[in-house]
Write a protein that binds this DNA or RNA. Sequence first.
DNA 1: GCTATCATGTAAGAGGCTCTCACATGAACC
DNA 2: GGTTCATGTGAGAGCCTCTTACATGATAGC
Lengths: 213, 213
Amino acid sequence: MGHRRRGYHHGNLREALINAALELIAAKGPFGFTVAEAARSAGVSPAAPYRHFRDRDELIADVARQGFARFEAELKLAWNDGLPDPFAAFERVGKAYLAFARAEPAYYSAMFEAGIPLEAHPDLLQAGERAFGVLRKAAEALSAKLPPEKRPPALMMGLHIWALSHGIASLFARGDAARRRVPMSAEDLLEAGMLVYLRGLGLWGEAGPPRPH
Amino acid sequence: MGHRRRGYHHGNLREALINAALELIAAKGPFGFTVAEAARSAGVSPAAPYRHFRDRDELIADVARQGFARFEAELKLAWNDGLPDPFAAFERVGKAYLAFARAEPAYYSAMFEAGIPLEAHPDLLQAGERAFGVLRKAAEALSAKLPPEKRPPALMMGLHIWALSHGIASLFARGDAARRRVPMSAEDLLEAGMLVYLRGLGLWGEAGPPRPH
DNA sequence: GCTATCATGTAAGAGGCTCTCACATGAACC
DNA sequence: GGTTCATGTGAGAGCCTCTTACATGATAGC
């Protein structure tokens, strides 16, 4: 639990509440989460959180924003500037997407399923855009491998991969009881889907991805 | 509104509540919905709904179940037994998927975003499977167009199309404030994605889908 | 150091929700 | 006509969000 208070003033309540929220969302989903319980976790009165967050949504939005930042970092790490080659790196990015959804279901919920209105939280929208930027840049690098007349729009390519990953993550990769069970792992499903999709773009022939080994 | 009561007994409260729930979910999302307000809509006391539904989740699950049934019907209609040809029909199914998500956001929310635990509502899971069955059957018909040694598993194919459609629908096609804006329609995005994917399966050459015109 | 200020805490409470329990009503059946 | 039982109500326990008035003590100026 986020460190308990020492005196009358907590000292770090804002962060403690975000951490508590994260644990509660992980345990009970973004709608089982309550501000009151987060306050109890942090050892303060139910009114205290409202000194730091206008309302419940703003607390969740802050969790989501932090989530997008970590998400972006994970995707960047996976992309690794497209090394050793964009194909392998692209596949890593897809895997990282699912890995994040699995490893950080609380963040993922807050980011995509909490229903926070993006219009009311523009910084959240921006954080999401930055994370998507990684996907888009990766798509650009891959697209550039094709002769100019066959290059697909990188934005569209990024959106397709995002949608496929997100679809698989939310339908099949969740740990909770709302997940549908299918006879293959979400990872295999995504990898296969990406391979088919990239082949459809003409990124390699029938043989499979060009691997340097 | 679902017809108001006539006497002490409502006469059709169960349906009236489901309809009220549908309208409330459409207006405020699946989490803005409250049983108490649905009861007010139907003109009964807040305790009355609990004669028909064990709890809030069960009411939403019933909405979702009805939604899956309609969804299945829409998809079937679009597939139309694969006529005039499986390619055109498959594309119609994809469009029907998005059309449903757009036209019936309340059903769609209840079906995919309400977080109803499928384990606790096996009939809901089943209704979802039946709807997916249409996609899978369509995938089988398309797969059969390929020579046996190149046929992809229809189940996998169906799951890919489902995930892509669902991903696009939930990220870009929602009418609410949580939607991300991109410079192309969700429909175009899905159609392009499906074309690339199907080409990746080898379902046609570089020229595009075989159209009978 | 002393004191004023102000961010950050609390207590109390209004209003709303879910769900339960005892009781009321009236439709359907004998 | 009387009984039964599904389906309604009223009251209320316990929870939640968020507000308001007040309490506390960290910090900054003197």
